[in-house]
Amino acid sequence: MVAAIVNTLVQGVLIGGLYALFALGLSLSVGVMRAVNVAHGDFIVVVSYLLLSIATGFGLNIFLALALVLPVAFLGGFALQRYLLQRVSGKAVLAPLLVTFGLAIIIQNGLLEGYGADPRVLPGGALETKVVSIFGMQLGLMPLVTLAAAIVLIFALDRLLYKSQVGALIRAVSDDPGAASLIGLSPNQVYGIAMGIVGMTVAVAACFMGLRSNFDPASGPGNLLIAFESVVLGGLGSLWGTLAGGVVLGVAQGVGGQIDFAWQTLAGHIVFLAVLAVRPQGLFPRY
């Protein structure tokens, strides 16, 4: 009984690492766009398909494929911001929201047209089946690597945002773009770089999502909701908070799944709404 409970919790924590990967980019992009990127989940899915095509097409190791995709993802995020989102960003939420909404639908149906509706999975090689024993528990190596990747990525982003010049630029511009331009900075250039970084986090998330679970052209909205819930649960703007939010969701889903498989997703939403009711600022608000 105790072992089963511990196992559920541990699995929840492990899946929480993946959810945090989904959420990091969304958290960062809200500061840039002043709106939620509704296509965030679909961006993750489209990069997963890109990784799939590269890995299977050239017979490359998936992590090598990820290394190739990272710069592309940076440029993709940069270009998306500079040539599309920037043109609709302003004081109103409506325009950026609807543009990303349109993108989401285009991506979902474009993938359906190009790859069909069958679920896919990324080839993880030997990593897929390896199991390690920790404190007597048999844990898959892949979930552990995913959680480790989330922790490393959060650490790196935290350093980048709070300890580097680029990070200070991004924080300054998202605090007060008007004041930033008063010292000669171009907010749009900085926003582009920030969205490029978001693109790279999306690529990492895409890689691990595809390694850990099935995906199909309609997986995007589910990812978006998970990412959104993790961000709000963790406390807006807090990077380590998103990990906590992801873990809370993962554990809630795990416990729900123990009651009945069909309760898994619903349990996550219910915990999210319950926390929203009692603690709207999230668990670890930054300010």
């Binding site: 809200v30 709106a35 939620v36 939420v93 909701l225 959104f228 069909a262 619903l266 709404l273 929203l276």
Partner: peptide, 22 residues
Amino acid sequence: FRLRAVYLAVGTWVVAEALMLT
């Protein structure tokens, strides 16, 4: 309405999703 304006849109989607599953 406890969510900031930016997040409200996706919040309504979560509620709809929860209602569907319920």
